[in-house]
Design a protein around this nucleic acid. Sequence first.
DNA 1: GACATGACCCGCG
DNA 2: CCGCGGGCCATGT
Length: 111
Amino acid sequence: MDLTQVSSFKQKVYAACLEVPAGKVTTYKQLASHIGCGSSQAVGHALKVNPFAPEVPCHRVVKTDRTLGGFFGQSEGEEITRKRALLQDEGVGFDGDQRIREGFVFQYDGG
DNA sequence: GACATGACCCGCG
DNA sequence: CCGCGGGCCATGT
């Protein structure tokens, strides 16, 4: 784990991911806001190129509507199925096939 | 620096 | 709920 091998922007993104506890998830927007980025899409890009996966829990980041979003470049398919499996394995609950149950979303300002 | 792309978000109908 | 258009920032060419 050597964060110096990535841009300072990604360092913030990955650091923010590590702040998310197992069994909970955060959103691209919240993560972006937490590191001072106005674009959640940029955050998504940083996660996509995340060289520290799964050491960096990029799977604990979902969209604002609490759907999974994407995983390793895929918005649907095996990788997404795996993302869902990882979250469920950590104790995250689902309201549907790709929707996180309310209450499993981590808040940076909440602890 | 300019152009194109992306694991996104918001407003409108 | 679904589709459409605009905005946002970082990355690669």
